[in-house]
């Protein structure tokens, strides 16, 4: 029997992996992907609670999260391209200077 706990556990595992990736990755693209993982983990929780409690509101919220995640990815990648154009690298350790 799959209970709401199973879904929350799955979301927690995904969130932890995402948090680890976001904090440890050197490449900015990987950081952005890890953030997407964390947003997805949050979404699983929203949908699971919505499904088990019988209210649709959580699913509406989750669809907003998806829209915002897409906007975040678009702007994030645009910033990465600018970074790459000026630094010739997307390694975040290289982007530690305040001026050049």
């Amino acid at each position: 029997m799959v209970t709401v706990y199973h879904y929350v556990f799955l979301a927690a595992v995904l969130f932890t992996i995402g948090a680890y990736g976001m904090l440890s990755a050197r490449n900015a693209v990987r950081v952005l992907m890890s953030i997407e993982l964390m947003l997805n983990a949050a979404n699983i929780n929203l949908v699971a609670f919505s499904s088990y409690s019988g209210t649709v509101a959580g699913q509406g919220l989750a669809s907003f999260v998806i829209a915002i995640a897409a906007a975040e990815a678009g702007v994030g990648i645009a910033i990465l391209l600018v970074l790459y154009r000026s630094m010739r690298s997307v390694n975040l350790r290289d982007a530690a200077v305040m001026r050049w």
Binding site: A19, S51, Q59
Partner: peptide, 28 residues
């Protein structure tokens, strides 16, 4: 990261989620 994960799972296990309905109780 492992410590964080263990902590989160521990608190989830301690929290009593009350499920009002079955899975799929809300129309999707």
């Amino acid at each position: 990261a492992v410590l964080f994960g263990v902590l989160v799972l521990f608190y989830i296990a301690r929290t009593g989620f009350v499920a009002h309905g079955e899975r799929g109780a809300a129309p999707g």
